[in-house]
Design a protein around this nucleic acid. Structure first.
Lengths: 128, 128
DNA sequence: ATTGACTCCGTACCGTGGTACGGAAGCTAT
DNA sequence: ATAGCTTCCGTACCACGGTACGGAGTCAAT
């Protein structure tokens, strides 16, 4: 019988976080009240990992709750729309981060090369 | 004489945000109290844009405050260290986002191709 | 001299995603 | 049967990055 602490461990989060997700409707609270606490199965572990992966993809917890609801109603068009939206946002975010990475790297190189004048990193983002 | 509202507009933020940054020490409050409000110059616009660019690069406001302080003391080694740290974090973050983007795109493709069984997007992150 | 737009300032409030705390109840081993 | 661990539950608190509000003062135009 898996208890909440084991579920949390398998999902790589803390017990409090599991309970937080339950409150948010992201994880179901086992219906069968068992003595000594509720217990969980592999489905719960899967669900928890789903939440964490979706988070990495940039979905907010509210959106993840919606995805889970879409799963319940098998609403594929809406699911595809959400995925497409998120992919576009990811592309934009990745592009921005790459641009930031490049200019930061350039500034660091210029700074390391020495030279005179002010350090390129400091006070230099206005040239980015 | 540029007033705070114009500074905010040029920086692409709201007046309240400018004041918030001032409180955080990210923007200086003009010393000369002028009647009818303080006024700002191009340096302030530059500084504000610096803050926004550094934010895009993933620096927290506290780190940006530190960068600004490093500028004051011209502490290049520390600036380079911070830049290197941030670049490494950016690389990691970009890699994660790209991975998430790819699996999300794959799921969306699989979902669009139709087929039977459950929608690949819904409840599928456990396979990512 | 009043209106309207703007400023300054402090303080309060917000969403997001947790994290912690304290009490009551249960299981398990001694 | 008592100690020690875990569970459940509600509530409070946290950091981050803002956003809003209310009151008082200042300015220019009417």
């Amino acid at each position: 019988m898996m208890r909440i602490s084991e579920l949390a461990r398998k999902g790589g989060v803390g017990v409090e976080t599991v309970r937080f997700y339950q409150r948010k409707g992201l994880l179901t609270v086992p219906r069968g009240e068992a003595p000594g606490g509720r217990h969980y199965g592999e489905d719960d572990v899967k669900r928890l990992r789903y939440v964490r992966h979706a988070q990495v993809a940039g979905f907010t917890l509210a959106e993840i709750a919606e995805l889970i609801e879409l799963d319940r109603t098998d609403d594929r068009p809406r699911a595809r729309a959400m995925a497409a939206e998120r992919i576009a946002a990811l592309d934009e975010q990745i592009a921005k981060l790459q641009a930031a990475r490049e200019s930061l790297a350039r500034l660091a190189r210029d700074c390391a090369r020495g030279g005179d004048g002010p350090c390129p990193i400091l006070g230099a983002f206005d040239r980015v």
